[in-house]
Simulated scan of single mutants.
Amino acid sequence: MNETVQPPSLAEAIQDRPEDVVDESTSEVKMQARDVSVFYGKKKAIDEVSVDVFTEHVTAFIGPSGCGKSTFLRALNRMNDTIPSASVTGTIELDGEDIYASGMDVVQLRARVGMVFQKPNPFPKSIYENIAYGPKIHGLAEGKAELDTIVEKSLRRAGLWDEVKDRLQDSGTALSGGQQQRLCIARAIAVDPEVILMDEPCSALDPIATAKIEELIDDLRGRYAIVIVTHSMQQAARVSQRTAFFHLGHLVEYGHTSDIFTNPQQQRTQDYITGRYG
């Protein structure tokens, strides 16, 4: 009989973390949010949040359900624009440029700041067309050969090429849940983004698929600035270098992941990571 594999505890996840080798003095701030508030009508969902997103880091947003972490994530590529009642105040800059400025091309912004959602959402197209769609729309390939190269490179970076290279014309929706999520990551990579936002990318996946996504996130770190929303503190401890703890729409604490989990400066952070609420 196979023994049930238990996921590591938070303490074990912290203990097993690789040493962070990023020199923060030379790490580039890719996105900078200052005093950002998000409203749905008159209701304030996010209250004056300030966070830096570094190119060389994976940044994790943690906190209880409904605390605003996904709302803030969506503000980073203006996904909240799709909600008529939503409005944003404060500033969010990408490479020093205000993404909410009136002249900002939102389509181009979302190519530069890609999004991977909680539930895998491949297009009802072939695996090949799922990847090729973005580069075609944005004019990134001049011909079929160049498009083939982009598709293969994106699937390789997403750790999916060897599993699908012989069935690229099969529907993307025929893949397993974990494969679909990696396909969605490959689709985001295909338009050569600078930032990848991931909104609980493993919440619908089994432990084996989750482990593959986490390995992929680690492989992609440094190529892209990555921000991940997760309900799992263990996952944040495993994959991120910086962690932001949200509670009731406020940013309670933000810093190095190891510090947040082993030496938090705020009582609310301590209470959350020790399970007193959440």
Results as ranks from 00 to 15, higher is better:
residue 268 R to S: 07
residue 27 S to G: 09
residue 127 I to T: 08
residue 253 E to R: 01
residue 278 G to Y: 09
residue 166 D to F: 06
residue 103 G to N: 15
residue 236 A to C: 01
residue 137 I to T: 15
residue 123 F to G: 02
residue 81 D to F: 04
residue 216 L to C: 02
residue 111 A to W: 02
residue 241 Q to R: 06
residue 191 V to H: 10
residue 224 Y to C: 06
residue 165 K to R: 15
residue 51 V to M: 15
residue 164 V to A: 04
residue 243 T to S: 02
residue 27 S to R: 05
residue 34 R to M: 02
residue 144 K to N: 12
residue 62 I to L: 11
residue 62 I to Y: 10
residue 237 A to P: 08
residue 63 G to P: 10
residue 95 D to K: 12
residue 218 D to Q: 11
residue 228 I to T: 14
residue 193 P to Q: 03
residue 74 R to N: 14
residue 149 T to H: 13
residue 260 I to Y: 02
residue 30 K to C: 14
residue 273 I to H: 05
residue 108 Q to W: 01
residue 269 T to C: 05
residue 112 R to V: 01
residue 104 M to N: 05
residue 65 S to N: 12
residue 45 A to T: 08
residue 96 G to E: 11
residue 151 V to R: 13
residue 46 I to R: 04
residue 27 S to N: 13
residue 34 R to N: 10
residue 1 M to R: 06
residue 168 L to V: 07
residue 200 E to F: 12
residue 27 S to E: 11
residue 181 Q to W: 12
residue 190 A to Y: 08
residue 259 D to G: 01
residue 192 D to K: 14
residue 24 E to A: 05
residue 42 K to L: 01
residue 34 R to Q: 14
residue 137 I to R: 14
residue 69 K to D: 06
residue 79 M to V: 14
residue 160 L to R: 08
residue 257 T to E: 00
residue 138 H to N: 11
residue 88 V to H: 00
residue 170 D to S: 13
residue 5 V to S: 03
residue 108 Q to F: 00
residue 91 T to S: 14
residue 24 E to R: 13
residue 246 F to C: 08
residue 263 N to R: 12
residue 105 D to S: 03
residue 56 E to V: 01
residue 143 G to Y: 09
residue 277 Y to G: 04
residue 57 H to D: 14
residue 224 Y to L: 07
residue 195 V to K: 03
residue 197 L to S: 07
residue 190 A to Q: 03
residue 7 P to K: 12
residue 29 V to R: 12
residue 94 L to K: 12
residue 259 D to R: 13
residue 2 N to W: 01
residue 257 T to Y: 02
residue 26 T to W: 01
residue 98 D to W: 08
residue 89 T to W: 04
residue 167 R to D: 02
residue 2 N to V: 02
residue 177 G to F: 07
residue 109 L to H: 07
residue 259 D to L: 04
residue 109 L to P: 03
residue 21 V to S: 11
residue 262 T to A: 02
residue 269 T to I: 09
residue 126 S to Y: 02
residue 278 G to W: 09
residue 220 L to W: 09
residue 64 P to I: 12
residue 271 D to E: 15
residue 105 D to I: 07
residue 71 T to E: 09
residue 10 L to H: 09
residue 157 R to Y: 06
residue 223 R to H: 14
residue 61 F to T: 05
residue 63 G to T: 12
residue 23 D to E: 15
residue 105 D to M: 07
residue 250 H to M: 03
residue 240 S to F: 10
residue 81 D to K: 01
